[in-house]
Write a protein that binds this DNA or RNA. Structure first.
Lengths: 355, 355
DNA sequence: ATGAAAGCGCTAACAA
DNA sequence: TTGTTAGCGCTTTCAT
């Protein structure tokens, strides 16, 4: 306990509902009615007495008891695969806000891209009887058995393939990638490579499909594909290789901002100018893309909307659905759009929308 | 519940401890003993029977019931002021890991630098009967009354002034700032400015004190002080002003990496070269400092250690203490240390440690 | 409009 | 070594 900030002598045992009832001269049921605003009505006079007693005692309902009785903890869980990636961090924060709006607290667990940790966390969340979990899984095809067994609802967050029977919220990876490539082609590029993030599960990432579609649509030949884990340092590593290679493409689509951040750094060190020597468009729309040098043209994910949709899917009462949101192309300097590269204003003016 | 991923027909009511007891042919107490490993011993044979029953039923203890009985939720709360700042995000993650090591889940709440939100979250955490909270307050002198009233332990995380009676964990802001300035002075700079982040509460930030100390120690005259909120865009804004000013200092100490990231961007746009025209040292040691261009020399906070110490302070049994950790100077290119600016290896070799 | 009381699932003191 | 049982604080049905 060493951390108590006050003089222990003052420690009064936490007031319970019974104490309030006694002080207010009513039954415990009545206290419940006023605290919860129902299910029965109470007369204004008694209500006032109860409120006074609550205030006098500093009474605070015990969430555990409530959860036990109700069978609902009014908590939601979220499993985040990578706190090193600002995209997930922003997403988690947005979810926390959206959940709070509906009275739910959020228990966040980081799986750090480990399947074992993911399972362990599912276990812990199930035990805590969360009312549902947002799973941003490492796996392409996440293992939902534990969740099923525990009879807890899931929404797959950041999942972009339609999976009948599951609720999911994601972004249109394929369409976004395609827009990226077409944008680059619009700048006159004919040799457009792909820097693709690799994830744990198998399965092909839709960004790769979209990239290829964009290439085909522009009547081009696919440029080189480079693969690396979704981390800045791996983007850096492959950037160094790309910079040194003799048949370097003139443009690159990077499947994530953090990969692009690594590329930027590698190209700077190698004296490869952007966008003159190589143009880049990336994916996510994180703050790092905005403040990098040059600013990264990126497909911004509508994080708040996705978070809201996910919460709705989890605790709302619509049917299970697969919601796919379109990303927005935010033009900055890395693709060649802006020569002077002024900072993108926060309130993005008239962005290009997909779909 | 539209989000259920399985065929509802299969939904079996969650097994309780009583079901396990029945199936194993023992009493509920015995089940408790094996689940909790005590307080009584059970024979290996019965233990096996119980474990089988648990597995067969997919039994999972109900944390709410346990919390109600024990008066402890085995959850800790953390109030984070700004999820836009990677430092806090990393810190929260480290705390989550450290807490998990001791069997605690972490309920994270973002106050977004709002005092109202901070209070609301304290309220909610208190109601959920968390066993303690980590408070990274917006306020210089946080308001602990609610926490006291709720009789819940607190450790002030990211709090660097000694406050008798409170447990706190922080970094040596003053010493770090001083090292930064001395390092810059060592590079020959005589005009060293300060870009200071402003926070909600009053009170002087120790980094400002340290900066001044460093200046004095080097026998210099204080350079200009510029103040801005702790955000990338504000760093950018003041960077633009600094770039345009006629009596710009030759070096800058920025009180946070994110401020420095904004400065970097502004200087690039303005054609101010770093470190040639202006050298920069910042504070925190976030990944953004590592991947920026040029790489930022920064005072890295020992986040994992701080997190561990905070958890220890909250749930360990030592006396309340004020732990101050020394930051480490990580040399990169922004101060003028590295001409070629290769990426700092992850395993920082022989860094300079503060006393 | 208010009250009495059962019971949510679990722990641990006490009994056997 | 194992079993019985009294609550933890709350919600809500069923009386009054």
């Amino acid at each position: 306990m060493g951390a108590m900030p006050h003089i222990p002598a003052a420690a009064k045992p936490t007031a319970t509902r019974k104490d309030v009832a006694r002080l207010a001269g009513v039954s415990t049921a009545v206290v419940s009615y006023v605290v919860n605003g129902g299910p029965k009505r109470v007369s204004p006079a008694t209500e006032a007495k109860v409120r006074d007693a609550i205030a006098a005692l500093g009474y605070r309902p015990n969430a555990a008891a409530r959860a036990l009785k109700l069978g609902s903890s009014e908590m939601l869980g979220m499993i985040v695969p990578d706190t090193t990636n600002p995209f997930f961090v922003l997403l988690a924060h947005a979810v926390e806000v959206a959940a709070a709006e509906r009275g739910y607290a959020l228990l966040i667990a980081n799986s750090d891209a480990s399947v074992t940790a993911e399972r362990r966390h599912v276990e812990s969340l199930a035990s805590r009887r969360v009312d549902g979990v947002f799973l941003s899984s490492v796996l392409f095809e996440p293992d939902l058995r534990d969740l099923e067994a525990a009879d807890i609802s899931v929404v797959l967050l950041n999942h972009s393939t339609d999976s009948p029977g599951f609720a999911s919220v994601g972004v249109d990876l394929r369409g976004g990638a395609r827009v990226a490539v077409e944008h680059l082609a619009g700048h006159g590029h004919r040799d457009i490579g792909l820097v693709m993030g690799t994830s744990t599960g198998g399965g092909q990432d839709a960004r790769e499909v979209g990239w290829l579609e964009g290439i085909r649509a522009a009547g081009l030949v696919p440029g080189p594909i480079v693969r690396a884990p979704f981390r800045r340092e791996d983007g850096y590593r492959v950037g160094l290789e790309l910079a040194a290679s003799t048949d370097r493409p003139t443009a690159l689509f990077a499947s994530s901002d953090i990969l692009a951040v690594g590329l930027l750094r590698a190209f700077h060190e190698s004296g490869v100018r952007m966008p003159e020597d190589i143009a880049i468009v990336s994916f996510d729309g994180s703050p790092e893309a905005e403040f990098s040098w040059p600013g990264l043209t990126t497909l911004a994910q509508p994080i708040e909307e996705m978070a809201r949709a996910a919460v709705e899917a989890l605790v709302g009462d619509g049917p299970a659905s697969n919601r796919i949101f379109p990303p927005t192309l935010v033009r900055r300097a890395s693709c060649g759009c802006q020569a002077s590269d002024p900072l993108t204003p926060r309130t993005t003016a008239a962005p290009h929308h997909l779909g």
